[in-house]
């Protein structure tokens, strides 16, 4: 950690970022509306992408201080620690 780059005070962040957050939430709402309005909307219910979006919205409602990291992991493929590592040629 670098004490010179402390996070800005919470009320100030809220003040500065409120309109941006509002705008981005509206974008997500409009994307979901667009999907609902389109033809064959029933097909997307089987698509994992929709459930990922819904899961991500649940993360936003939680109290974690690492929501961005949690959402990144939600949208990530699983890692298998037993994969076959290639052998270095010394």
């Amino acid at each position: 950690m670098d004490p010179r780059v402390k996070a800005v005070a919470a009320p100030k962040v809220l003040e500065q970022s409120f309109l941006e957050a509002r705008s981005k939430l509206l974008d997500i709402a409009a994307i979901l509306d667009r999907i609902t309005r389109g033809d064959a909307a029933e097909l997307v219910h089987q698509d994992v992408k929709i459930s990922r979006i819904i899961e991500a919205l649940k993360i936003l409602q939680g109290s974690s201080a690492h929501k961005a990291e949690q959402i990144q992991k939600l949208f990530s493929l699983p890692y298998d620690a037993n994969w076959e590592i290639p052998t270095p040629r010394y």
Binding site: Q72, K73, W83, I85, P88
Partner: peptide
């Protein structure tokens, strides 16, 4: 995107190996 986390773990595995 979705490949980043797994790929980064694999890369770190190879570097440490």
């Amino acid at each position: 995107l979705e490949d980043k986390y797994k790929g980064t773990r694999m890369i770190v595995d190879m570097l440490k190996n």
